[in-house]
Design a protein around this nucleic acid. Structure first.
Length: 304
DNA sequence: AGCGGTCAAGTTGAT
DNA sequence: ATCAACTTGACCGCT
């Protein structure tokens, strides 16, 4: 086992490894009778549960200590028309059994798992329907989290609607209404154009929500805090191992599209003050497992 | 086997 | 007013 303190995280998919999650679309499924739709969904869910175990095994083998689970691990789970309960699918028991095997594996081998619902989940929205669907999605991810022992469901604060205080106040209210399995896993992340760490700390402190500090986003959307300060304040919001994000811009820090992610992490983008911390760092890079392994090597093997 | 078109969802900001 | 970007492919259906 590696002796360094930092636990690196791989996000959702692989670049070179033949480990692939399956998916489908509502439009394609809708051509089949309902029973056939359930059969197809069941096959995909079962396949994804088994693939997740392979993903975790790869991480374990290569000393990657954390894995982010794709939001579509159960495709269309909360779709307005094609949504479903896993219990209503053929072979539901097998699907759940296989996910629970992932939970057992990650506990035994200390692989941390996380979720990161995508941009459509907006708890601060002015539209009640959007909030309702967002909550349904969070509940689905909390359900899977319980099977696989994921301890983080990480979201952004959402839209601003020209009035940040109101948006944050709506956010607080909705967070207060979340069921416990979601609430105890929920984290907030600073984003690259609306909410800086400074914007989010009051909510995090008042409501005991951990802040996932994304240093790349912080470099895109600055506030009055230094990286060191934001790091320490973020770490303080965690009642368990803090989770941070790292990525590098595709064309350097001066390009207009610096928000886009590079294939790899430039080792100089990795904050030096993180080196001695007991943290999880999810690596957001397009080269996926290749980038995680390269960064680990450069930080801990090539350095002095 | 290879390739192009398509896919549930929200919000922002560039054109 | 429209539309790409964000994430980021994977899949289907055609050649």
């Amino acid at each position: 086992m590696t002796k360094e303190a930092i636990r690196f995280g791989l996000c959702c998919i692989f670049k070179e490894q033949p480990i692939k999650f399956r998916t489908t679309t509502a439009k394609y499924l809708s051509q089949f009778p309902v029973e056939e739709q359930k059969n197809r969904l069941s096959k995909i869910c079962l396949s994804n549960a088994k693939t997740l175990l392979k993903a975790l095994a790869f991480c374990h083998q290569h000393h990657i200590g954390s894995f982010r689970i794709n939001s579509q691990i159960l495709p269309l789970k909360t779709h307005p028309q094609q949504g479903y309960n896993v219990r209503d699918l053929p072979k539901a028991d097998q699907i759940i059994k296989n996910f629970m095997a992932c939970g057992k594996f990650s506990l035994e081998h200390d692989i941390r798992t996380t979720f990161h619902p995508d941009q459509f989940i907006v708890l601060s929205s002015v539209h009640p329907d959007v909030v309702k669907r967002s909550k349904a999605d969070l509940e689905y991810q909390a359900e899977v989290s319980q099977w696989v022992n994921a301890d983080v469901i990480n979201i952004h604060a959402g839209g601003v609607y020209n009035d940040k205080p109101s948006a944050l106040s709506r956010l607080r209210k909705v967070i207060d209404s979340l069921p416990d399995p979601v609430r105890k896993r929920l984290t907030l992340e600073n984003d690259d154009k609306s909410y800086s760490p400074e914007d989010l700390f009051p909510v995090c402190r008042d409501m005991e929500i951990p802040l996932v500090y994304d240093v790349h986003h912080h470099r895109c959307l600055k506030d009055n805090l230094s990286i060191k300060d934001a790091t320490d304040l973020s770490a303080d919001t965690w009642n368990r191992e803090p989770l941070f994000h790292i990525s590098s811009p595709i064309n350097g820090w001066k390009s207009p599209d610096m928000r886009k992610h590079h294939d790899f992490i430039a080792v100089n983008d990795f904050p030096r003050n993180w080196m001695s911390m007991k943290i999880t760092v999810e690596v957001e890079a397009k080269a996926k497992e290749v980038a995680v392994l390269k960064l680990m090597k450069e930080l801990f093997c090539d350095g002095k």
